[in-house]
């Protein structure tokens, strides 16, 4: 933890379980562990990329960060103040500081409402605008995401995926947040449109001094946009590092596997796992490293206890007892 003064968001030991409790007759209900202890910190103005495959808990994490879901354990701090305190003071306080962009742009817009009504909501309820000021601000926002203002009077189904995602971004910007959590913002888009949206996001970041938490399963996209990257596997961060370091010298075998599995245009010959490996059962997480059953480097200690890691703001560490590319000095 070199310089903590400019950290805008920090989570400590975040856990989220679903289910649990007792049934009417006193039997135990099964508990699903979606997020199993996450510590991440984001500095002002940077992009933290979070990579993981389906079922690793990245969307649950995203929903907790914006307050759509509450952690079972642990807490989230926004520039020094606890998120729970923020919400109890003013239920709008959180949404004014941190906003969310959804994966599926069309289904995040109400099909029966004009874009105008959708976009006016955050301006009206979070920023207290009305009348001409509201109208002017909406035009500004549409301009910021390169859409024509007459699109305000259309319905969501009249838009292509890329245009709808711009509206989703405009809605997030409307709240004038410091941080935007982007949950797979380009996954549902066509490749030629992906680049448009990614470039727009990068321009907006510079223009408004935003901080991004960029969640994706696509390594190449995360590599292109992130300053720092955290790799998630089965509810935990298994490796975190500045972007370049992570992609050049991955230390966790899982990161290595991910990088080797991604097809690259013009290259042939992916390395593939032999076994038809699967994720562990989320109802009964294994005692040791969750990746151990798939890992070629696994030894006895891997299945006995969970490897620990120290994730700072600038260092490179992996939760692994037998990492690749080990460092001599830390």
């Amino acid at each position: 933890m070199s310089d903590v003064s400019d950290v805008v968001l920090q989570t400590s030991d975040l856990v989220r379980t679903f289910g649990g409790g007792r049934t009417l007759l006193g039997g135990k209900k099964p508990t699903v562990y979606a997020v199993r202890g996450i510590d991440v910190a984001v500095r002002k103005g940077e992009t933290l990329g979070i990579v993981g495959e389906s079922g690793c808990g990245k969307s649950t994490l995203a929903r907790m960060l914006v307050g759509l879901d509450r952690p079972t354990e642990g807490n989230i701090t926004l520039t020094g103040s606890d998120m729970n305190d923020l919400i109890s003071d003013d239920r709008h306080a959180l949404s004014k500081r941190i906003q969310y962009v959804f994966q599926d742009p069309i289904s995040s817009l109400n099909p029966r409402k004009l874009i105008r009504e959708t976009l006016a909501a955050p301006l009206r309820y979070l920023r207290g605008l009305s009348g001409d000021a509201l109208e002017a601000r909406m035009k500004e926002l549409m301009d910021a995401v390169n859409l024509r203002p007459e699109f305000l009077d259309r319905y969501p189904h009249e838009f292509s995926g890329g245009q709808a995602q711009r509206i989703g971004i405009a809605r997030a910007l409307a709240a004038e947040p410091e941080i935007i959590v982007l949950d797979e913002p380009v996954s549902a888009l066509d490749v030629s449109v992906q680049a448009q949206v990614l470039n727009l996001l990068s321009d907006l970041k510079d223009q408004f001094g935003l901080t991004y938490i960029f969640i994706s399963h696509d390594l190449s996209v995360v590599e292109a946009v992130s300053d720092r990257v955290a790799v998630m596997y089965f509810g935990r961060v298994v490796e975190q590092a500045p972007g370049r370091a992570l992609f050049e010298k991955p230390r966790h075998p899982y990161t290595r596997l991910l990088l080797d599995s991604a097809p690259v245009p013009g290259k042939r010959g992916l390395t593939v796992e032999d076994a038809t490996a699967e994720l562990p059962d989320p109802l009964a997480p294994p005692p040791g490293c969750a990746f151990a059953p798939r890992c070629s480097r696994a030894q006895d200690d891997c299945v006995a206890k969970v490897p620990d890691a120290h994730y700072g703001l600038d260092n490179h560490d992996a939760a692994c007892f037998h990492p690749l590319n080990p460092v001599t000095t830390r």
Partner: peptide
């Protein structure tokens, strides 16, 4: 459980709205 309901929550709308 559709995403636009979550989006409305994040836009500052209360339950009744």
């Amino acid at each position: 459980h559709r995403e636009f309901v979550d989006a409305a929550k994040l836009s500052g709308k209360g339950h009744i709205r």
